[in-house]
């Protein structure tokens, strides 16, 4: 088992957003700015890493027939912890991400990695896989958030690049999310086909 490969796999080759197309709801819903995208990505990465480690430790103890409900309870536990911590220490971010924090429970990436990786590998490899996929997701969300923030308001991470009047407000609103992600994936497809 090559640990480095496990880690980089999630960053590039199996990037959850651009390649596997999983977890689209938070990807589109929370990326109104680079900061929100980064926050949501890190929140998901936290849940993913913790649930991956715990599931891979407990994998022998969980009966096969009830493994999905058991995984969901483990994931939901970490989401609840995350919710409480964020509400206490980062109320502004918690407020702006809103509904999407509890919805990490039904994020297909988390359950998908539990099922396809953590249930078969040792805790350390699962940790690396969780970190890789989590960072890949964070990267994708931050990129999409920055693109939308830049086109919509002229800022990147609240740093002004051009006057707000020139921004296209549509990119901060709902339609812009779909369109920006569509073009990002098209660009990545193009780059991939060139490399191949």
């Amino acid at each position: 088992m090559n640990y480095l490969k496990t880690f980089t796999n999630g960053l590039l080759k199996e990037n959850p957003t651009f390649v596997l197309l999983l977890g689209m709801c938070p990807t589109l819903g929370t990326t109104t700015s680079g900061m929100n995208g980064l926050g949501m990505g890190l929140a998901t990465a936290f849940v993913l890493i913790c649930s991956n480690i715990v599931i891979s430790i407990l994998k022998r103890l969980i009966p096969d027939k009830v493994h999905i409900p058991a995984y969901i309870v483990i994931i939901a536990t970490f989401v609840t912890i995350l919710q409480m911590v964020m509400e206490a220490y980062m109320p502004a971010l918690y407020e702006s991400l809103g509904l999407f924090i509890p919805l990490i429970v039904v994020n297909c990436i988390v359950l998908g990695r539990a099922e396809s990786f953590a249930a078969k590998n040792n805790p350390f490899a699962s940790f690396l896989d969780g970190a890789g996929i989590g960072l890949g997701f964070t990267f994708a969300l931050t990129l999409l958030g920055s693109v939308r923030e830049l086109l919509g308001t002229g800022n990147i991470f609240s740093f002004r690049l051009f006057p707000e009047n020139y921004g296209m407000l549509i990119f901060v609103l709902a339609p812009g999310a779909f369109i920006a992600l569509g073009y990002l994936i098209a660009i990545i497809n193009k780059l991939k086909s060139k490399n191949a």
Binding site: A174, A177, G182, K190
Partner: peptide, 21 residues
């Protein structure tokens, strides 16, 4: 070629969202 499948679907969804706006 690069636009086939998901990218186009997302852009169409964006236009639909614009109509709903």
């Amino acid at each position: 070629k690069g636009m086939e499948g998901t990218p186009t679907a997302l852009i169409v969804a964006g236009l639909l969202a614009m109509a709903f706006m």
